[in-house]
Amino acid sequence: MADAVILARRSALAGILQPGDHGANRFDGPGIHLTERTPFSVVQIEARADTAPALADALEAATGTAPSLTPNQSAGTGRPRILGTGTGRWLVVEPEHRDLAAYLRGALPDTVAITDLSHARTVLRLSGRDTRTLLAKGCAIDMHASAFLADTSRMTGLFHAACLIDCRSAEPVFDIYVHRSYAVHLFEALLDGALEYGCRIA
C-alpha cells in the first residue's frame, strides 16, 4: 500500500506558488514577501453565547493560551494561536503537529461545537514594506498601522474572497486565512497587485 503517497497532504497552491522574485526589481528590495504556511491546523470552536467565558477558561486550560473575549483580538504566539471570529467563537490555529481537533474534542466540554477546518483554509503569510498597501487594494477595511494593530484580526473580503486577516506584528506581518477553493484566486490577485512593488515568494 502506497500510504506514503497518501500521507502527503497537498496544498491548494501546490505547483502554483513559484519561489523566486517576481515583478519590479526595486533597489530597496521586494516590497512584498509571500509564503504559504503549510501544513497547518485550523479548528473552529463555538460555544453558546452564555458559556463563552467558561469556554474561554476551558480553552486556556487545554491550550495554555487564553483567548480574548474582546472581538477581533488574537492571542498566543503560535502553538496554538487563538483568533476571535464571532461571539463565543474562535479559531484555534497552529502549524500541524498533532490532530488538533481530536485533542480539543478530548479537552473541551461537549457543549462546544468543534469543527476541523484545517483543510478548508489555506494560510498565506504576507510581509514587507508594501504589505498594507497591497491589502488595501483588495479590501475596504483600514489597513493603516494605527488602525490595524498587531494581535488583532479581521474577517473580511479580500479580492472578493472571504478571509480572516491576522496581524502578527506591526512590522508588518499578516497571516491570511482563505477558503481553500479560493486560494489560487487570492494568490493570483495578491501576486498581480504586488508586482509593482516586487514580490519575493519563499
Partner: peptide, 15 residues
C-alpha cells in the same frame, strides 16, 4: 476525505 488528501485519495481510488 479532508481536502488536502483529496487528490491522493482520488488517485488511490483509480489505482
Amino acid at each position: 476525505v479532508p481536502a488536502g488528501y483529496g487528490e491522493a485519495a482520488w488517485e488511490r481510488c483509480l489505482a
